[in-house]
Design a protein around this nucleic acid. Structure first.
Lengths: 205, 205
DNA sequence: GTATACTTACTTAACGACAGGTAAGGACGA
DNA sequence: TCGTCCTTACCTGTCGTTAAGTAAGTATAC
């Protein structure tokens, strides 16, 4: 039983795709409206302006993200928690590739279009990671880490993995030494990344 | 003895800054021209169109980059080569932060504005890395790696480190658990990243 | 039950600002 | 005088945004 979407939901969904493909500046409300099947002015009935539409798109998924991550961390020991953190991050970005691309655009222009609330929500993911790392350090499992550096490796790898698939294909075409290893999907990448990061920060026994 | 710059050089330099800050779509030629101190029409004397200007900016730095990396790799053993690769990549992006931001924008929209020539040049960096990894695998120093995954970790970490400094500062403000560890500069990050990656892919002795 | 008042969810049409791009011409050094 | 390096003036299209209007639905009063 496929549920029916209201025009507003359809608008948000299509807007997300447009913002993900072209970035804030590259998106025109005309184009969105046309695809939704309404007029541009109708967007202004639902949202104050372009900024508010973007904010709605971004905040919705950001809040999803932190809920998803928090729900995924069920383990007791820090190492397993860290693995769950990394893998749930990857799984979420796989499920919402548009969101990954929107994040990539946001990172590229230094969060220019992110409201304080959006930044605050994003900060919660980093807070969660920091707590895990601190616990690991206290229990003498991890070496001391800068949480920002670890977060950077995780988030940037996932986000750019999701967004640069087409570019990588073009690049691969020119790499002579490149044996045609199959491109790992994001779930494989998550596992690889988790293993690598844990290996890299774990205290030598 | 400060050399004098031609208008064209000044134009390229300022264009790079604009493209790095706002991305291709967000940049207006009027704004660039104004800052250079010429009129928009003068840009069309030097370049065919907006695309050609962007291409010139991007290709120039890309060619710099591969020259810089190749010149930096002087070691004999793969492990040291890999370290040099990573550190020279980081050093280059530190010297040209505008270039890092342009790359970030390009990654965010999947290389939409990259010409085949630009892609080809970018591919050379990946080719260099692949050769190093293959040598390490042959000599039984590294475990088998997907070069794309390793390149992804290196490039994405550096690029987003350079571009998201302001955003990270905003995020840090909301992270309660965050002890105010000083933000590592990119050279520290390069060392950390090199150590981590080598630790992660090196064969256990 | 039906007239009235009001809300919801849009459309049509237009606004001013500004985008990329161009044709024509002028200043100036060799 | 000829090419180089620009400027002035302008065109066309598209942008975000708004005002005004409207068909359909809902709530209330009698």
């Amino acid at each position: 039983m496929g549920r029916t979407f209201s025009k507003k939901e359809k608008l948000l969904q299509i807007a997300a795709r447009h913002f993900s493909k072209h970035g804030y500046e590259g998106v025109s409300l005309d184009a969105i409206a046309k695809e939704v099947g309404i007029t541009k002015a109708a967007i202004y009935y639902h949202f104050k302006d372009k900024d508010a539409l973007y904010e709605a798109v971004l905040l919705f998924r950001l809040e999803n993200l932190i809920a998803h991550i928090k729900a995924s961390i069920t383990a007791q020991n820090p190492e397993e928690k860290l693995r769950q953190y990394i893998e749930s991050f990857g799984a979420f970005l796989e499920d919402y590739p548009c969101f990954a691309a929107i994040l990539a655009h946001e990172f590229a222009d230094n969060g220019k279009h992110m409201s304080e609330k959006a930044v605050q929500t994003l900060a919660q993911t980093l807070g969660t990671l920091t707590a895990i790392l601190n616990e690991g350090i206290e229990k003498d499992i991890f070496t001391i880490q800068n949480p920002f550096a670890v977060q950077l490796m995780i988030v940037s790898s996932f986000v750019l993995h999701q967004t640069t698939a087409g570019l990588r294909k073009r690049v691969a075409h020119y790499v002579q030494e490149h044996a045609v290893t199959p491109e790992p999907d994001i779930k494989d990448l998550a596992k690889t990344l988790a293993t690598k990061i844990i290996k890299a920060i774990r205290k030598a026994q």
